[in-house]
Design a protein around this nucleic acid. Sequence first.
DNA 1: GGCAGTTATTTCAAGTATAAAATATTCATG
DNA 2: CATGAATATTTTATACTTGAAATAACTGCC
Lengths: 163, 163
Amino acid sequence: MTFAAKPTPRPSSRPPGKQRLRLWLRILRATRAIEAELRERLRVQFQMTLPQFDVMAALARAESGMTMTELSRKLMVSNGNVTGIIDRLVNDKLVLRQAPAEDRRSFVVRLTPKGAAQFELVARAHEDWVNTLLADFELDETERLIGEFDGLADRIRNGGTRA
Amino acid sequence: MTFAAKPTPRPSSRPPGKQRLRLWLRILRATRAIEAELRERLRVQFQMTLPQFDVMAALARAESGMTMTELSRKLMVSNGNVTGIIDRLVNDKLVLRQAPAEDRRSFVVRLTPKGAAQFELVARAHEDWVNTLLADFELDETERLIGEFDGLADRIRNGGTRA
DNA sequence: GGCAGTTATTTCAAGTATAAAATATTCATG
DNA sequence: CATGAATATTTTATACTTGAAATAACTGCC
């Protein structure tokens, strides 16, 4: 049996390799490129911003609406931020706030019929765009990556609080 | 918010069109979680924003400085955006603009000695943070993912302009 | 030389983003 | 049932972000 043919410095005690950093930078660049592309298409074809679409997508999946805090956590943006996005969507009559009787601190936010109808349209296009943009990934490759990224966000969130 | 393990709805039975969308949403969430964590640590430990760090990182790698446009392309943010970030860094004496003699339209931006020294400090911490946050990925897994994400941003960018 | 077209940067308006403070409400507990 | 802690949202100040328009400077061509 032979050891590595490569001139590795020290296999056992590798210094904090830069590989994960390299991976992070690549993921970051790819994410930004995809977001830029989606943002541009949403703007040109549907006169809608990406955050607005994100909010509507979350609401479309929530049968009984969501509170501001739930939206904030789901989308991983600050709570103060959600206020402004919802304000504009309410202004455009795509979303409405309703006050639940049991807790007057909170609002439940949901899509209006107009909002739901418009979202259906946009969502179809959006899914196609993502399929095109990620066409590099074959089906089984996609499955494997889904597994590798699954729960990562939550682990980072929960692990990060103690450090 | 609860994160009950999903019942794994038999991947093969899902329409293939949705898989890439699912992958995209997971990548997006993970990226946002990592960015939030890095931003928080930069703020608390170094009183620095993430975009400012990104700019300094790009400059630290560029021996002879970069122009505004080069920075904008490298970081994939709009050109107008770079102006404000550089303004603040110049104000903090971490970066300086210098006018090249041959083209008076452009500036070359580079780190000051103070900026370079500070960046060294921050970069070490940043690398450790990323290593910790991406600790889920083993070395060979990391290598494979680097390969899969390599060039994706550029392909999206170049392919996206004509569509 | 003069002028059209391109390139580099800044400015602008609007929207997004954060953290922290302020408000309002609910809950637990004594 | 008072009151202090916790929760939900908005407000505020600052920073980031974009796309488009405005400036300024370079290039090529006649």
